[in-house]
């Protein structure tokens, strides 16, 4: 398994938008994919097709509207369209180690626009889930997602303080140091009464909620097996 080093991931989070200039026009180079010829192998694609929204990617006609629509296009390694092609090419490692789906902020622009009706953000959710399941979790977003879910499912409600703590615990102290200026934000939030230090009460029906979750996951597994 290829592990993207944390440095690289952090570096890629810096927008490098349209740095190159040609006359009045700007362009942004996309990540070069590979120099040697590639083969088409649909084995991996078939695995992805089986995900909840995975089969939609078959419909992509390479129009490239998603590329442009993405709020985070400046930092995304492969635009959704290319990611779908990579899946069809069988480039599993490139796909799962890319920052594409982790960069997705679920703003729905691509989903609302996609002329082929592909619910792109939902596919990105599937890929996040798939990546987490297969241990491709080196991007900070993965830790954040996991922290969010753990916090939420253990309480029935979200406690930001708890989630942030969980996140930094996973990511380690380095990350806190890098985020020291966050301190200012935290303090002003506290000052303005927007950051309760104590978590909200757990919901009364937490037991039921947990049952719902485990049943839902069970049904999902059953369906996937079919």
């Amino acid at each position: 398994m290829v592990t993207p080093d944390k440095e690289r991931a952090a570096e890629q989070a810096v927008p490098h938008s349209f740095k190159k200039k040609r006359g009045d026009n700007y362009f942004m180079e996309q990540k070069k994919i590979f120099s040697e010829p590639v083969k088409y192998d649909l084995t991996f694609a078939r695995e992805i097709y089986r995900l909840e929204n995975g089969s939609y990617i078959k419909q992509c006609m390479n129009c490239g509207l998603c590329t442009v629509s993405c709020a985070t296009r400046d930092v995304m390694e492969y635009p959704p369209r290319q990611l779908f092609n990579l899946i069809k090419l069988g480039k599993k490692e490139e796909v799962l180690t890319s920052n594409t789906f982790w960069s997705c902020t679920s703003c729905c622009t691509c989903k609302a626009r996609c002329p082929r009706g592909i619910p792109i953000i939902d596919v990105m959710h599937d890929l996040k889930k798939y990546a987490i399941e297969y241990g491709y979790t080196d991007y900070p977003q993965a830790a954040f997602y996991k922290a969010f879910w753990t916090e939420m499912s253990s309480r029935g409600k979200m406690f930001e303080g708890g989630m942030t703590a969980r996140y930094f615990l996973t990511r380690g102290l380095d990350e806190i140091v890098k985020a020291m200026d966050m301190k200012d934000v935290g303090i002003s939030m506290l000052k303005h009464g927007r950051m309760p230090l104590l978590p909200p009460k757990k919901i009364k029906g937490l037991g039921g909620l947990k049952k719902i979750i485990s049943k839902a996951q069970e049904l999902d597994r059953k369906e996937a097996a079919r």
Binding site: F27, M28, Q30, I33, G64, T67, V68, P79
Partner: peptide
């Protein structure tokens, strides 16, 4: 106009 020039592997902004 912002578009993905797919054959050039670029996102372009052209006026």
């Amino acid at each position: 106009v912002i578009a993905e020039d797919q054959e050039a592997q670029q996102v372009t902004r052209k006026s």
